[in-house]
Design a protein around this nucleic acid. Structure first.
Lengths: 119, 119
DNA sequence: TCGTCATTTCGACGAAGATCAAAATAACAT
DNA sequence: ATGTTATTTTGATCTTCGTCGAAATGACGA
């Protein structure tokens, strides 16, 4: 990941509501969560949530898909891996390794472990 | 690292100048760099640099010490390790490991490899 | 087609972030 | 004491960020 992308990801996560949203989506795995449910769980007004969701989408940390009349958001594990890789490579010593640590399959409890690999 | 600290660190790094400063300090190792030299290398006005350095200090990512009439700033590797640990534990799947990846000894070239362990 | 549910867009507002020039402080040498 | 260098503080200005209520869009069912 180049600097631009890392800055976008860092900026997107550097806000309490957005960090909460992302963490929530991570625990839900690839199945994701509808906007309304996220708003309910976190106690955020719909308009505000949309604002934050857009920032996260724009940073590539989450993706959006439509299911009926609701919009489902889910975490983009690859982006988090790239961010971690960037940080270990550029903000630690020179010899830092970058083993991918994020895996949707690890989101164990709420969503049944999906066999499909990461997009 | 609790959420508050992670937010502070993310916010501190989510700005181009500050990310540049931190990356520069990381490459310099524990020896650190004087404010004036950082300003020179990055082409930032002194007042602006001070502003950004303060943000980084406040987030715990760098530390300050005085050497004669200059102020030396150096990277706080522990803070970066904690941030990486927080991200892997909270923003990846549940089973993510948190092996400390940052080591000042890895900043090989400019500073002689220090034997003292990470704080 | 009409209503209604889910979500987004719009417009306005205050708060926080970033930048700059100018003045102030701190440390040292003469 | 005085001057010089290194850095910070101050204050002003401008932009960006986050929040909110109200209106608009999109998708579905009757």
């Amino acid at each position: 990941m180049e600097k631009k992308g890392a800055l976008a990801a860092l900026g997107a996560l550097a806000q309490e509501t957005r960090l909460d949203v992302f963490r929530l989506l991570v625990t839900e795995g690839p199945a994701g969560l509808a906007a309304g449910i996220i708003a309910d769980r976190l106690g955020v007004l719909p308009a505000s949530l949309t604002f934050h969701l857009q920032q996260l989408v724009h940073a590539g940390l989450i993706t959006q898909r439509r299911l009926g009349r609701q919009l489902i958001y889910s975490a983009e594990y690859g982006a988090m891996n790239e961010l971690l890789a960037y940080l270990t490579e550029n903000c630690c010593g020179q010899g830092a390794s970058a083993a991918p640590a994020c895996d949707p399959a690890a989101a164990c409890c709420s969503a049944p472990p999906t066999r499909s690999s990461v997009a």
